[in-house]
């Protein structure tokens, strides 16, 4: 093979909870430096797909490749160690720890103090709002700040790949769109490839390089953002979700 392998590739990935299959035969990939959006109706299994990739849900079949090597069986903490990171849709911060401690815990596997300090600086430069709240308990931050912290925490290990599950869910539309724009900056500032699940489907596909549409646990469509947005049959989905 001539070109470098994609950062993330799933081959026929089937996942769920226990024996319960939720997503089936999913083939997706995220290239170096790409931002890829994953959209789909509620309950279609977007979160479950991310969890299966990360090993938080049960993988029932197929494979997950990270930079060409098979990581299907690696437990979550090992995946974090080799350069992946994941921001769950809910419960994605440590509410009883301060903002600073949340970030420190994000870098739990990084033993080099100066690296940790640098990463923290990077996070504060991406999300300047957080800087003033370093010693505040994360649980008392506003919703938007909590999401920033959640993403910031994941950046602390300087991952090559970031899985973001609806980082804007539950935020006021204006704040949500601002945060989305910030997240695209993350790619440049932190040099990371991103797979993002987003309910603001339209905006996400506009910002992303490519997108996948997940319906009932299967990939129903894929392509670059513009062409997906142009597809008649998917219009209802985008309108329905963006509201």
């Amino acid at each position: 093979m001539g070109s470098a392998p994609p950062v993330l590739e799933t081959l026929g990935l089937t996942g769920g909870y226990g024996k319960n299959v939720i997503v089936e035969g999913v083939n997706i990939s995220v290239g170096e430096g790409e931002v890829v959006a994953l959209v789909g109706p509620n309950g279609s299994g977007k979160s479950t797909l991310l969890k299966s990739i990360y090993g938080v849900a049960t993988v029932l079949g197929g494979r997950v490749l990270f930079r060409g090597s098979d990581v299907t069986k690696l437990p979550p903490e090992r995946k974090t160690a080799i350069g992946m990171n994941y921001v769950p849709q809910t419960e994605n911060i440590f509410p009883d720890l301060t903002v600073r401690e949340n970030l420190e815990m994000g870098a739990y596997l990084v033993r080099d103090e100066s690296l940790v300090r640098d990463s923290m600086e990077t996070v504060f430069s991406i999300f300047p709002q957080l800087r003033g709240f370093q010693n505040v308990l994360a649980g008392s931050l506003s919703g938007g700040q909590q999401r920033m912290l959640a993403v910031g925490r994941a950046l602390m290990t300087r991952p090559k790949l970031l899985l973001l599950d609806e980082p804007t869910a539950g935020l006021a539309p204006k704040i949500a769109l601002e945060l989305l724009d910030l997240l695209v900056n993350v790619r440049e500032e932190a040099g990371v490839s991103i797979l993002i699940v987003e309910q603001h489907a339209r905006r996400a596909l506009e910002l992303a390089d490519r997108g996948y549409v997940l319906v009932s646990g299967r990939i129903a469509a894929e392509g670059d953002g513009k062409s997906l947005l142009a597809r008649e049959d998917l219009q209802k989905l985008f309108l329905g979700i963006t509201g």
Binding site: E77, E91, N92, L97, E101, L109
Partner: peptide, 16 residues
């Protein structure tokens, strides 16, 4: 404390 506060996330961050 992180483990107490959010065990799943603690595991994701690499805490045993």
């Amino acid at each position: 404390r992180a483990t107490a506060s959010n065990p799943t996330l603690a595991q994701i961050t690499g805490i045993n």
